[in-house]
Amino acid sequence: MTIYVEVIGDPIAQSKSPAIHGFWIEKLGLDAEYRACHVTSEGLADYLAERRADHAWRGCNVTMPHKKDAIPLVDRLEPLAKRVGAVNTIHRAADGKLIGRNTDVAGFLEPLSDRLEQQHYFRMARVLGTGGAARAIVTGLAKEGFTLVLAGRNPDKARALLDELAEGEHHTAPLAHFADPTDFAFDDREGCCDLVVNASPLGMRGQPPLAFDWSHAPPGSIAYDIVTDPVETDFLKAARDAGFGTIDGLSMLIGQAAAAFSYFFGKEPPREYDAELRGRLMA
């Protein structure tokens, strides 16, 4: 029996998940398939009921707009998914139960792992955006001891998100605050870890640009953009031109897929081929 996994969403044609998981399936020689399946909000419950009865189905990745709506439809919800309030991975456990998980947090943190293993006097992240992706990012960074500045069009929404997901003293700002230059004199950042994260769709193909002036970033900051289309965003280009290090959206995408792959197939994906995988995704 050829087992299969799917990614579901509305729309779904743009998903890179079939290319990522298919690449790993090919490298490992698994008798398995990974498919994309268009599922509307109205059809989500029926989809899961039908797939639950298919023993060849091992689960699905969940994209927008289903990450919250899937929560009441699973049998068990892992604590992290409950905290984030979003499910991006559903897998069938050995007992047949459907487990709702969130691998976005692990995927986001993965390319930061080397830095997070170091000791820092202080960690601060400026996170731009207050949508669904920001929930996972805020949760992950708060867990790693970052003081957060969460910026959005609606600072009240940003404050509510911080109060829900991040313990400690954190801050909000209007997104427009970062658009104009500043002459703020940053203190000594030796031994600190600073991030500027675009957690919004701004800068994505077909979306307005993200207005961020890099004078707002402390020296030594890392620019991290979760946008994957294009991979090389204007946000990252401007950061590099200003002398900052960068992390692109494929890093998070591949990281969250790797965590999900191990649940679906019971094997670790062959990460030694990441450079080849990136080449395929960017072709």
Rank of each mutant, 00 (worst) to 15 (best):
M1G: 06
Y4A: 00
V5W: 04
V7L: 11
G9C: 08
A13M: 05
K16C: 03
P18E: 14
A19Q: 14
F23Q: 06
E26Y: 07
E26F: 02
L28F: 05
G29L: 12
E33D: 13
E33K: 15
Y34C: 10
R35Q: 13
H38M: 05
T40H: 06
E42S: 15
E42R: 12
L44Y: 08
L44R: 11
A45W: 02
D46W: 07
L48S: 10
A49L: 14
A49D: 13
A53W: 12
R58I: 11
N61A: 15
N61P: 00
N61Y: 01
T63Y: 04
M64V: 14
P65L: 07
H66D: 08
K67T: 08
P72E: 07
R76D: 05
L77Y: 04
P79N: 03
P79I: 01
K82T: 05
R83Y: 00
A86R: 01
V87H: 01
H91F: 12
R92E: 02
D95A: 04
K97N: 04
I99N: 01
V105C: 05
G107A: 08
L109P: 01
E110P: 00
L112H: 00
S113K: 12
S113L: 03
D114L: 07
R115H: 12
L116Q: 03
E117N: 13
R123M: 06
M124E: 15
A125H: 02
V127G: 11
V127Y: 01
L128H: 04
G129F: 01
G131S: 06
A134E: 04
A134R: 03
A134G: 07
R135G: 12
V138P: 11
T139C: 15
G140I: 03
G145T: 11
G145A: 10
G145R: 05
T147H: 10
L150R: 06
A151H: 03
A151G: 11
P155W: 09
A160L: 15
D163C: 10
L165Y: 07
L165S: 08
L165D: 11
G168P: 08
H170M: 13
P174H: 09
L175P: 10
F178N: 12
A179G: 15
T182Y: 08
F184E: 14
D187L: 15
L195N: 10
V196E: 03
V196M: 04
S200A: 10
L202V: 13
L202P: 15
L202G: 13
G203C: 07
G203M: 01
M204V: 06
R205E: 13
R205A: 15
G206R: 01
L210A: 12
S215Q: 06
G220Q: 03
G220V: 04
I222V: 11
A223N: 00
A223D: 02
T228M: 13
T228R: 05
T233E: 03
F235C: 06
L236H: 05
A239H: 02
D241G: 14
D241L: 10
G245S: 13
T246D: 08
I247F: 05
G249T: 09
M252D: 06
I254D: 11
A257R: 11
S262Y: 02
G266F: 02
P269H: 09
R271Y: 03
Y273K: 10
D274Y: 02
L281N: 09
